[in-house]
Structures are given as C-alpha cells and as structure tokens.
C-alpha cells in the first residue's frame, strides 16, 4: 500500500515534500486517479486538497493571486477573476463538468503539466507567474513560460510545491479571447485550445500573447507568430502572415482525438477570427 500523508499546514507540507521527494503531491486527483488504471502508483502521496494556506483568491499590487489548491469551482464563483480574466473563467467552465470542477485545482493542472491542460494556455497568455516554495530554500516566482518545460514536465524542484499563481492585471483596452475545441461540449479532452490576449494602439498591435494547447508536446506560446504581429498595423495581410507563421510554428500530431491537419487548420482559423475581432474591438 502506498503511504498517504495529509499535512495540515504549508510548513508541514513542505517538510513532507523535502523528506519524501518520491511522493506525488496531489490535490483534486482528477487526472492522476485516471492514470492509475493503466500505470503504476507512486510509493506515496502528499495530499494538499483543502490545505487552507494555499487556497483562496486575493488582489494586491496590480496582481490577482490564486492559491494553488483553490478549486475551479471556487475560481468560477469569484467575480474578481471573471471581471479581470474572463478567459480563465471561460476555460474553467469547460473543464470536465461540475463534479470535476469541484475537485480540480489550478495547482494540479500546473503540476500535471499535460499538453491538454485546459488552463495552461490561458495562464501563458496572461503572463502568469508561478509562486513555488521549498522548506529549505524559501520561495521563488517562476514565469509561466519557464515553468512549463516539456511533455508533462515542469520546473518544480524535487523539494518544491506550487503555492500560488499570480497574474498581472491588464491595462485598459486589453482584449482576451479563448476557445477550447473538444471532442464534445462537456467531459471532453481538448483537441486544441487557443488563448489570445492583445491590445491595440490605434491600429497598431501594442501587446500580443498567443498561446495554444494540444498542438505540441506541451502548451506553448507562439512567440514567432507574436513577433509577426508586434508593433504592426493589424490589417488583413498581417493577419495572413501571422496565420502562416503559426502553421509552421506548431507541431500537432495525429492521435485518437483528432488529426494534425485539422488542428493546424483550426488553429489558423481561430487566430484569424480572434485577430479580426481584436482589430474590430
């Protein structure tokens, strides 16, 4: 039988993590439990679900911070999140269904770091920072783009836990777009996700972040595509150029959920749609 630890404080959790680097930190378990039907269990678990110190949402200093163990359900109920980051609320509303949303957490999504983690493209497009901590080395802030390392791999060290996710409030005039293309409308794993956050100055692109999921080994920002747009006037030719770059920048695959051809085409369609909307906004 696997060992099961349920620390009651963040301090105890970090101590447990340092003492048992081979144990799997868990929260809502909506992903890891599914895996156990076809893969080996770890030797032990550190259960963080319901740990009060890493739950909750607060606003300070131009940021909104969400505790790693805050459930999707609680995030959805928060008007501050919806007003500031409607794309995050939209993305969460499409994760699994209500039961999954009452268990799943942002920290869990980052911990698993799956290519189809539904919140990850949103966090990438919002320039989130991941606050991680260790009992010996204290805490650090890792930009989300550095936190996601590869296929189901993140930058968390063996003695670290995810504490909270910090997102900068966007200046006035910033538009946010989100789309999940799933295998159906609920209880579905994504074929593709795209999040675009952008702001124009007149006709010119002043700020642009484009992030996708399920088009590569890990959720990714498409920085080459962003570069095509940055500082440029947003007209039809720029948009076509951005779509072209996007098609070569992502590397989707054929799998049981969709095809590479479809993913590429739909990614370009959605980018065109969002950029047109941004231009017209």
């Amino acid at each position: 039988m696997a060992d099961f630890l349920q620390p009651q404080t963040l301090h105890a959790a970090l101590e447990a993590r340092a003492a048992h680097p081979d144990y799997l930190p868990i929260a809502g378990c909506t992903d890891v439990m599914v895996g156990f039907s076809h893969q080996a269990q770890p030797t032990g678990f550190i259960d963080l679900f319901g740990l009060a110190e890493i739950q909750g949402i607060c606003a300070d200093d131009g940021h909104i911070s969400i505790g790693a163990a805050t459930t999707y359900g609680d995030i959805l109920k928060d008007p501050l999140v919806y007003e500031s980051f409607p794309v995050l609320s939209e993305a969460i509303r499409e994760i699994g269904a209500v039961q999954i949303q009452e268990r799943g957490t942002l920290g869990g999504n980052l911990g698993t770091c799956s290519p189809v983690g539904d919140t990850l493209p949103v966090l990438l497009a919002l320039d989130a920072q991941v606050h991680v901590a260790s009992s010996k080395r204290g805490s650090r802030l890792v930009p989300i783009n550095d936190f996601i390392v590869g296929y189901r791999k993140n930058a968390l060290a063996e003695d670290e836990l995810i504490v909270e996710i910090k997102m900068p409030l966007a200046p006035e005039g910033t538009q946010q777009y989100w789309r999940k293309v799933g295998t159906r409308r609920a209880q579905s794993i994504s074929k593709l996700m795209m999040c675009v956050v952008g702001r124009l100055n007149g006709k010119d692109v002043e700020h642009i972040r484009i992030a996708l999921g399920a088009v590569a080994a890990a959720p990714m920002r498409v920085e080459k595509t962003e570069a095509v747009l940055a500082g440029q006037a947003l007209h039809e030719e720029t948009i076509l150029a951005a779509q072209d770059t996007l098609a070569s920048e992502i590397t989707p695959i054929d799998d049981v959920r969709s095809s590479a051809v479809y993913r590429k085409e739909v990614a370009c369609n959605l980018l065109g749609r969002f950029l047109n909307d941004l231009g017209g906004a």
């Binding site: 295998t183 159906r184 409308r185 609920a186 209880q187 579905s188 794993i189």
Partner: peptide, 10 residues
C-alpha cells in the same frame, strides 16, 4: 474518454 458518445450537452 476517447470513444466519444454525446452527452446531454449535445
């Protein structure tokens, strides 16, 4: 998960 059937949402 992968052998999709519609839900009430469809």
């Amino acid at each position: 998960t992968d052998c999709i059937i519609p839900t009430a949402m469809e």
